[in-house]
Simulated scan of single mutants.
Amino acid sequence: MHKAISVLQYLADCERAVSVKELAYSLNIPSASCYRLVRTLLEHNWVREVPEGGLRIAFGVAHVARSYSEVEALVSELEVPIRRLANDLGMSVKVSLREGHYATTALRAEPARPNAITSPIGYRFHLTIGSAAAVLLAQLSDEEVELILQTAPDEAWKRQAREDVWSRIRDCRVNGVCCDLGLQHPSIFAMSVPLKLSDLLTVALTAVGWKEDFESHKREVITKHLTSVALSLGDL
């Protein structure tokens, strides 16, 4: 995978066609491996051979980039309502999406109060960790979930068991909401709900705060706010 990315980056940076020999030499990839890699990229229309000889980026990469830009556009439409939700709750709010076996923070908003917990945009965490990840796992089949659990890093199991992950998934599937109340970190509490942006994209909408923010009498209010916003923004 790293070699394939390096090939695509090299071709993207060049304003001319590049030979396989140059790719192998410049990227320090064995010639045989480089030829196999290029053949695979050609089959998927990620690179193309040009008449004058050599390789250039092909339309297949543009298709992938366009697909991601569509996701980015959908997420960007959430910015204003997410900021409003953060101020209504007095807690940080984030939107997470699935990328392979990881969840990535795609959008965040902090309330107008000091010491709010924040999650940087682009922050990645394994899908076994936290309530947002459980929402994303809940969209998959049990078989897919089991495969992802097998890829979890050792630190994912330091404060939880597999059953804790499944419990959050079940809560999401049955009740439409799940929590991580200090399980992964004793000071960080979170509640998440699914937000369906399109037929192919469901993200996790999460409120993150301190222990006192999630005292039992406050959880119902948080749930109502999250589910109300998720319903109003669904299928934008």
Rank of each mutant, 00 (worst) to 15 (best):
D180E: 01
V47S: 09
C14A: 14
R98V: 05
Q9W: 12
S67Q: 14
K3P: 04
W166E: 09
D88C: 03
L137D: 04
L197N: 04
V71L: 10
R124C: 12
Q184G: 09
L97H: 07
S228R: 12
A62W: 09
I57H: 04
V47P: 08
M1W: 06
D171L: 01
G234N: 13
R170E: 05
E220N: 14
L97R: 09
L23T: 01
F59T: 03
I148K: 15
L8Q: 06
V229P: 05
A58L: 09
Y102F: 10
A65V: 09
L8M: 13
T223L: 14
Q160P: 00
A190H: 01
E49Y: 13
L97Y: 12
G176A: 10
L74F: 01
A112I: 15
S131F: 04
G130Q: 11
V93C: 09
L127C: 00
C34V: 03
L41S: 02
V80D: 07
V135T: 15
G60N: 07
V174E: 03
A24F: 04
A112L: 10
E146D: 12
E99C: 12
N87L: 08
N28P: 05
R36A: 12
M1Y: 12
A4C: 02
Q160Y: 07
E146T: 15
H217V: 04
S119A: 11
L147K: 15
A4Q: 04
T202K: 00
R162L: 00
A138N: 02
S92V: 01
V221P: 10
R84M: 05
I129R: 14
S216M: 09
I129K: 10
L89W: 03
V75N: 01
A132N: 15
L200K: 10
Q139G: 08
D235V: 11
R98D: 03
W46C: 14
N175G: 00
R113L: 14
S31H: 12
K224D: 04
C34G: 08
T40D: 09
L37M: 09
N115G: 13
V80C: 04
V61Y: 02
Y35G: 05
K21F: 11
